[in-house]
């Protein structure tokens, strides 16, 4: 197997290929196993993000249900809209209260979905935190900035790993805060029943502005560069 020892800036550590320094070989294998462990963490992070996207599609469908009920409310509040049904005494009140009931239960299940997002954020935070401790308190002792930047072949550098985990955590954390503030604003909109607000909120929920997919992809591409090629 042939390894290229690359370094961003040329440093004494970047030993030339011919004269292999035993110390460098040791560090290299240690580094490789560390990188492997980080890749493991990213695999876990990917699973967590899959959980996020499932929760996301659930949230969108719940939001759609909520907004269609909210849009209907003004119509079912007017008894003259009940047409032939108005021969049934009390039908308008019954339909209205039933709709409010379903609205409430969907809002409750949106709370469950938010808890799911929160679970993902907590896992990502743990991955990020463990990753940091791993470098600081690892068996190899303190690592210098140079070692952090060192890159072996297509493998990512340690700092790529650290930054990646941190970024993924930050993105999802910010997005979670956005989502929870939108969801908590929903009951207020029920009273205003302003449809334009609803569609812009829906857009915001669907877009997930804090999690740019390109960026997520490029982080993962760097970490798993070997697997792509």
């Amino acid at each position: 197997m042939l390894f290229f020892i690359q370094s961003i800036k040329s440093t004494p550590i970047a030993v030339s290929d011919r004269s292999i320094d035993p110390l460098a070989v040791n560090t290299r294998t240690a580094m490789e196993s560390m990188i492997k462990k980080y890749q493991q963490k990213f695999r876990k992070a990917k699973e967590e993000m899959d959980r996020w996207s499932e929760a996301q599609s659930r949230l969108i469908s719940q939001f759609n249900n909520v907004s269609s009920i909210i849009e209907r409310l003004p119509i079912i509040r007017k008894e003259e809209n009940f047409g032939a049904l108005s021969c049934v005494d009390g039908i308008a009140d019954a339909v209205l209260s039933k709709q409010l009931q379903s609205l409430q239960s969907i809002l409750l299940s949106m709370g469950d979905t938010l808890a799911e997002f929160r679970g993902v954020v907590l896992s990502l935070e743990k991955l990020h935190r463990d990753g940091g401790e791993f470098v600081r308190g690892g068996s190899s002792g303190q690592l210098g900035a140079k070692q952090l930047q060192q890159q072996i072949g297509l493998k990512p550098s340690l700092s790529d790993c650290l930054d990646g985990l941190k970024l993924l955590y930050n993105m999802h954390f910010a997005e979670y805060r956005l989502k929870s503030s939108i969801v908590s604003a929903l009951p207020l909109i029920v009273f205003k029943s302003s449809i334009s607000d609803l569609s812009s909120l829906r857009q915001l929920l669907a877009d997930q502005p804090n999690i740019p997919p390109d960026e997520v992809r490029s982080i993962l591409d760097i970490i798993f560069a070997e697997e792509i090629s």
Partner: peptide, 19 residues
């Protein structure tokens, strides 16, 4: 009676609501 959109919506909502 000539039915308007709102009444249709009420009919469909009543269908779903299963009061």
């Amino acid at each position: 009676s000539k039915l308007n959109n709102a009444t249709f919506q009420v009919y469909l909502t009543t269908w779903i609501a299963e009061v």
